[in-house]
Write a protein that binds this DNA or RNA. Structure first.
Length: 467
RNA sequence: GGUGGCGUAGCCAAGUGGUAAGGCACGGGUCUGCAAAACCCUUAUUCGUCGGUUCGAUUCCGACCGCCACCUCCA
């Protein structure tokens, strides 16, 4: 069964076929580093991470580039407000971004280039555009001439910018130096108090869109397989990337465009003013675990809006606790040696198949998680009946390894030894239970519960777990 | 004004022209000395409303209602 993705470019679900055999080249628009990333940002980054993990899991060799936008209007504004040089200002948010990404188990892409380290590449690309008549200088800045690119609008369907009723007047007033209001800036003339780079285009700084074209081409070539990001980037950012890239090279830029829908918080667009704005740190400070946040972000397929609520994170915490306990019991299980017909191993194999098929189908994480739930139940039944064979155990563990490789939602195995005094109490309780001294046994259980250690009696003895 | 999307049980949510996955919560049960955990059962005759096409629609078409997004910085 092959992989399929919904391609924003064609608005259709298409079989995924890389340009070069088993090698996949992919570009993802990364963060603009002027503040802590919020969970909406991370919805997209978790989606990209799952895409990345799934491609690798299916055996593709991956070259994944994610840029860091470290120069733009907001960054300049906030760096100035903070009284810091641009690089020093962005450096700290780059660091915070990776801290958050690590907490969410987001894998590091192979290449994570920063815009300001690629000014020469951008200038060179703009030079090509001028050379082919697709760009022009005006008043110290350089603009892309949209009229030179007939395919403009293929991705977004927007043929014209400034078509908002009542909005076009403002656009025109600001942009009188352009030949056409739709044209966008490639290189901005230097401004007082702004970071400036010298270049053959004159002193100035890059416009927003050119960085992604320049860096994608540098690391991935002029044509590559996948370009992804949030839906809001479709227009103008990705539309402009296509225009400037394809105008310069005459070749198709990215073949598959994948866009993650936004998330809402409590059913509304997240905004600081509304008070429904969360960074990852906000959630960690409230005591939620990053993996639960990841689960929430991963559980809704990426093309659907996701309604984020704290209740949802709490439900995810409960869900993951059960799942992790099942995996732990499975790891510790001693398989039965009694020979018998092993139905479980076959059922598990089918479930693993379903999991992969769901993910192959445009990353249908909701359906994949249904398979995970089946796997969990199957394991628990076999375990409680004492019917888990070596083969079934191995298959089930492999199944959870699949889940972990692709979704990254499980806790790592971490065998933990209890302090000797607690072990002694557990032993004492066992003896008390054997002697039917239940009062003492319950007393010990309550005492340990107060310390966050839950005891569970089963037919193979007593297990403990953290509350 | 233009464009796109969504509306499925208390909540999150999958899905399909053929009779509604899964999770969380709730209730009942099995197991247990009692618990816990696990498991089982129950929970939408119904998929925003009204029409149409069809042997049959939640799934296709139309209208309407409600919500969201993009068209401007935004993941």
């Amino acid at each position: 069964m092959s992989m399929h993705f919904f391609n924003s470019l064609t608005r259709q679900r298409e079989p995924f076929v890389p340009l070069e055999g088993r090698r996949v080249r992919m570009y993802a628009c990364g963060p603009t580093v002027y503040n802590f990333a919020h969970i909406g940002n991370f919805r997209t980054f978790v989606f990209v991470d799952i895409l990345r993990r799934h491609l690798k899991w299916r055996g593709y060799e991956l070259l994944h580039v994610m840029n860091l936008t470290d120069v733009d209007d907001k960054i300049i504004r906030d760096a100035r407000a903070a009284g810091l040089p641009l690089r020093e200002f962005t450096e700290r948010y780059v660091t915070h971004f990776w801290e958050d990404a690590d907490a969410l188990d987001i894998e590091r892409p192979e290449v994570t280039p920063r815009a300001t380290d690629h000014i020469p590449e951008m200038v060179a690309l703009i030079g090509r555009l001028i050379h082919c008549g697709c760009a022009y200088h005006s008043d110290g800045s350089t603009y892309f001439r949209i009229a030179s690119f007939p395919r403009y609008g293929v991705l977004s369907g927007n043929k014209l910018a400034g078509n908002i009723a009542g909005g076009s007047a403002r656009v025109e007033a600001d942009e009188y130096e352009k030949d056409d209001v739709r044209d966008f800036v490639l290189w901005k003339r230097t401004q007082p108090d702004e970071p400036t780079w010298d270049s053959p285009l004159g002193p100035g700084r890059p416009g927003w869109h050119i960085e992604c074209s320049a860096m994608a081409m540098k690391y991935l070539g002029e044509s590559f397989d996948i370009h992804c990001g949030g839906v809001d980037l479709i227009f103008p950012h990705h539309e402009n990337e296509i225009a400037q890239s394809e105008a310069a090279t005459g070749k198709p830029f990215a073949r598959y465009w994948l866009h993650a829908e936004h998330l809402l918080v409590d059913g509304r667009k997240m905004s600081k003013r509304e008070g429904n704005y969360y960074t990852l740190r906000d959630l960690l400070d409230r005591g939620y675990r990053a993996r639960a946040v990841r689960y929430v972000l991963a559980a809704v397929p990426y093309r659907k809006p996701l309604n984020f609520t704290l209740e949802g994170v709490e439900a995810a915490e409960r869900r993951l606790k059960r799942l992790n306990e099942t995996v732990r019991r499975l790891r510790e299980a001693v398989p039965t040696t009694t020979n018998q017909v092993d139905e479980t191993a076959k059922v598990v194999a089918d479930i693993r198949q379903s999991f992969g098929a769901a993910m192959d189908d445009d990353l249908n994480t909701a359906e994949a998680l249904a398979a995970v739930a089946q796997l969990e139940t199957t394991v628990n039944i076999a375990l409680s009946r004492g019917e888990l064979t070596e083969a079934a155990k191995a298959a089930a563990l492999a199944g959870f390894e699949d889940v972990q490789a692709v979704l990254g939602i499980l806790d790592p195995a971490q065998p933990e030894l209890l302090p000797a005094d607690i072990e002694a109490l557990i032993a004492e309780r066992l003896a008390a239970r054997r002697a039917k001294n239940f009062a003492r046994a319950d007393e010990i259980r309550a005492q340990l519960a107060a310390q966050g250690i839950i005891l569970e009696d089963g037919k193979d003895g007593t297990r403990w777990r953290r509350a």
